[in-house]
Amino acid sequence: MESFADLDRLIGAVPFAIVNDLRTIDTGRGSEALYRDKLPQLLTSLAHRARVASIEASSAIEGVVVDDRARAAEIVSGRATTLHTRSEQELAGYRAALDYLYQEQWQPMNTGLVLHLHRLLFGYTAVSGGAFKDTDNIVVDRLPDGTRVKRFTPVSARQTPHHVDELVQRYRTATAANRHHPALLVGLFALDLLTIHPFPDGNGRIARALTNALLQDVGYEVTRYVSLETSVARSADAYYAALLASTHGWHDGAHDPWPWLRDFTRTLASSYEELATLTSSARSGGSKQDRVRTHVLEHAASTFKISDVRAALPGVSDPTIRLALAQLRAEGLVEVDGAGRSATWKRLSRS
């Protein structure tokens, strides 16, 4: 039974930990207009970075990886004229699906959109995308010793079209009713789509791409600027554990959605916190070297590389980063091990 069958019973009482995350999410949403007005160039740069990171991270979660970074960048940018491997083809496919959603012409949400995204995802492969599964499937985990264990049993192939149609209609009805927090409704949509598991392959990527689009559609645009997929990839074990916990009893309407929604809202709240960090130095009017200094001393990991700082501070050049690090080193606040691109920097404790 889908989560939307009885929303008042299922999510009528929100746990306190999730209330706190929703408060962070709504506060972050309220700041987005300020960022768009005051920091348009920074947001453009962040959007480009997030798009690339989302394509690579969501694909990598499913084992679709192009090890050559230059080659991956060529594919993500659309400059690759030929695609040599299945991973390259699927990376290009996820780019096509995500870019279609970013055009903002996909509304309204319907079953045809779900099928079209799947068609785009596998559009560069020999696999025929854009059709629901025609045989029943199960979702399995592979243990470290190679043993496979069943995670859950999805909806049957025969019932899949009905379940997807019903999910889409119930989601649209619930969103229009405005009785429950829209972020929770998006999270429930993703949970149900993953549990229905409508395709032989690509279910996770389709669910994550739609999550971005649905959040933006209800006004939570952080996924334009901070890659939600990257956050999921960083904590993939927690993501899958939460999904497993919330699928138990789903077919009987006896499942607990809160493990999944707790992980979902925490990830979304963290994205807003990251966006606030990325914009804080720019809003304060500090120089680019000041932005590097603040990031290294207050936000960066204790051990980092110049590439990490570059990724965290779009628009700041490598020479500027090196100048700021040289000053911090002279002050005894950081030290470096190695030279060139492989150099590793370490933040020292301040006495």
Rank of each mutant, 00 (worst) to 15 (best):
D67K: 12
H84T: 04
A60R: 11
L39G: 04
A47E: 15
V66L: 06
D67H: 09
D67G: 03
K38T: 14
I61V: 14
D37G: 08
S31F: 12
T44Q: 08
L46C: 07
I61C: 05
A70K: 06
I61T: 13
D37P: 02
V66G: 07
A80K: 00
L34Q: 01
E74M: 00
T44D: 14
I55Q: 13
A80Y: 01
A72W: 07
R51T: 14
R51N: 09
L42S: 12
L43P: 04
R79F: 00
R71C: 00
S45L: 15
D68H: 03
V64S: 12
R51H: 14
T81S: 11
Q41E: 15
S54V: 04
E62C: 07
Q41V: 14
R49Y: 10
D68C: 02
E32I: 12
D67F: 11
L34V: 12
V52G: 14
A73P: 02
V65H: 01
H84S: 07
L43V: 08
A73R: 14
L39I: 00
V65D: 11
E32D: 06
S54M: 07
G78W: 10
V65A: 08
R36G: 07
A50V: 01
A47S: 15
V52A: 15
A73D: 12
P40H: 13
L46P: 08
R36I: 00
V64W: 12
R51A: 08
E74I: 02
I75P: 04
V64D: 02
S77Y: 00
L43E: 11
S59K: 12
R51M: 12
T82Y: 08
S45P: 01
L46D: 13
L34M: 11
Q41A: 14
S77L: 05
V52P: 04
R49I: 11
E62Q: 12
A60P: 03
Y35R: 04
R51I: 02
V76I: 14
S45Q: 13
R49E: 15
A57G: 06
A70T: 03
V64F: 11
D68S: 03
T44P: 00
S45F: 09
A72N: 05
I75V: 01
H48P: 00
A50F: 02
L43H: 10
L34R: 13
I55C: 10
L83R: 07
A73W: 07
R49L: 15
A53W: 09
I61D: 13
S31T: 06
H48F: 10
I55F: 08
H48I: 10
V76T: 06
T81W: 00
G63W: 03
A72R: 03
T81E: 08
I55M: 11
R71N: 06
E56W: 09
E56A: 13
